[in-house]
Design a protein around this nucleic acid. Sequence first.
DNA 1: AACCCGAACAACCGCGGACTG
DNA 2: TCAGTCCGCGGTTGTTCGGGT
Length: 336
Amino acid sequence: MGRSPCCEKAHTNKGAWTKEEDDRLIAYIRAHGEGCWRSLPKAAGLLRCGKSCRLRWINYLRPDLKRGNFTEEEDELIIKLHSLLGNKWSLIAGRLPGRTDNEIKNYWNTHIRRKLLSRGIDPTTHRPILNHTHNNNNNAPSSTDVKPCNNNNSIPSSAAQQLQEDHHPHHHQAVKTICFSNNNTNNNEERKPEVVMKREEIIIPFDYHQPREMLVRPSSSSSSSSCSDTTATPDELNLELKISPPCNFQEKVNIVRHQQDFMMLQGMPSSRSSTSTTMCFSCSLGIQNGKDCACHHHPHPIHYPGTNKINHGYDFLGLKSNNTVLNLDFRSLEMK
DNA sequence: AACCCGAACAACCGCGGACTG
DNA sequence: TCAGTCCGCGGTTGTTCGGGT
């Protein structure tokens, strides 16, 4: 579908903002509030594209921004959230007050990536960088060579894979999903790594109060693809997430332990080694706002302020579910 | 002093979802 | 239902700056 340009490009400034432009933008937004970015530049007397104004305001001029270096706690929180959410910078930023998605994205690319690599962790998959090969194929690439299977919008496979390899037998059945196929039978040609998803579910247990399962399955028609299927490509992956209500208490305890093992494996702080009582995943992420907290052993109804609604379901990162399986699309989350 | 290079970050661009008539 | 529009997101690019040679 075609679209008109967002602004009259011939009459707009580009590049770095001047102090005067900043002042104009601040003054206008103070007087009129945010919004209507398309018409804002003209109304504010700025020769800028509306998108540029929005970006400048959100990433630089907003008064609630926290400038300055990231703390160690923020680093760890970003890493944990990224391992859960992938490159959903706006969602991650929503959990770091005063930080913007652009700032976090830049910080990730310049600092945290290197930090994880120095820890021996693949920043894309959050898995340890191993040198041994997968599958029975001696020519299979090392994990450091693996192209990210979650290039843009899917969550990292790390949690799924880690938990898959964990001792969770009844889940293990469903999770034999990711392998490295060799789609090139010609030994003279360079072999390229490939991640192939089978049409089976990946079940990622979260903490026991929050939704237990994240079911990841490709929705494409490549239903018969398998590890030996040489036709599927990573580009065909279309992962969708589903979350269902929690399991029974003992399972919940196991799940929390698995998460803690997972985090310990990645060098993340975990409560497991120090105490036998469990800290919920929400708290371990620093999300301790009560309704996300799962440190209580039975779910409680959530009342949403300003409404008459009481949700007896489960709330994950601000998402609400009832007793039915919840289809989760991170892009639809309302975070701010 | 001049040049090179990499790190850091601001800003741009294109795409897709939501909304509306 | 569909086309047009707006907004927000995420990837990428451009610019600046500091350190090393």
